[in-house]
Design a protein around this nucleic acid. Sequence first.
DNA 1: ACCTGAACACCGTTCAAGT
DNA 2: ACCTGAACACCGTTCAAGT
Lengths: 194, 194
Amino acid sequence: MRKLGAQLGVEAMSLYRYVSSKEDLLDGLVDLVFAEVEVDEPGTTEWRTAMRERAHSHRAAMRRHPWAVGFMEGRMQPGPASLRVHDATLGILRAAGFPFRAAVHANSVLDAYVYGFALQERGLPAQADGDTAEVMREQARHVPEMSNFPHLVEAMREFAETGFDYDAEFAFGLELILDGIERAEGFSAVAPGG
Amino acid sequence: MRKLGAQLGVEAMSLYRYVSSKEDLLDGLVDLVFAEVEVDEPGTTEWRTAMRERAHSHRAAMRRHPWAVGFMEGRMQPGPASLRVHDATLGILRAAGFPFRAAVHANSVLDAYVYGFALQERGLPAQADGDTAEVMREQARHVPEMSNFPHLVEAMREFAETGFDYDAEFAFGLELILDGIERAEGFSAVAPGG
DNA sequence: ACCTGAACACCGTTCAAGT
DNA sequence: ACCTGAACACCGTTCAAGT
């Protein structure tokens, strides 16, 4: 509050003319992040494509605003952008013919994956200066009592050489889940409208 | 710090004899949460069973300590319990015959899902007093301008009647992902050691 | 060895008072 | 209508000083 005020050339207390609390302000900010998430209109795009694109867009928004990751879901006062995203996502699945329960399941797995991946990605190496391998090498030296953990040693060695491709990793899991949804419900790339 | 001190019948500053900072203390607490996660020894259990049980145990630990959800991954000083869990998880997959890259992929999707689900579960309705439906009804009344979002309205109505079964939802996604891993790598329930 | 008083540099928030 | 000074009830942390 105090810092935000300063950045606006004003005292902290002035902000309370516009927001009722820090929580309220945060609600607004979170909805701005949701506003950056692109979702197709239900019924306009094949569901798998639409869900894939939403997931990538959602992840991208959270990479731009890492602080938001823990705040986007479970908010008691979801803003209009949040409602839009969630409604459209369910709508896409329903329009493709998913029964209500199936749509909820599909949405649930995908969302959990997207948020969880963003959570892991945030604060992990790499985004410091983009050089994953460097950070890994540093970390490897720092832990000599790692000999009890051979698989972690293998992982550090491997990634110290090759780095870690977050984009590829994310895409792998995403396609795996989309495959699973398609199979679980027997929906093989149904065209818009059924 | 001040509150913790008080709870120990001591001033806040005394704590700095035992931890070097709040961050340091948090590292220790997080590792205590990891210590509650049960993982089979690599090679003792069929990989699918082992991974399923670890996921359930991991989620259970985070339900007992919701504050920990955002802190468990990406810590720069992982404690011994954290190292144990991660090493054992990779070990289980490797022992089942997964090549290194495949094991990393499998672990990555599963972890993202587990953390993401825990993130969504935390703070959402239900855990207030266990009555999801009640909270949903309340929320439904509170938002009349929801008419723009028919699928959310449908969801609220549905869950206001039936409640929301987090356990079933978690299990559904978990099995879907385990299926996907099995299929992606061509590992159909390989016995320990081969 | 273990604890603390005083102090520093912070927070979010209220409220009566200013223009 | 919009802003603020003073104040309240907090934080984490340092450090010299106590026993």
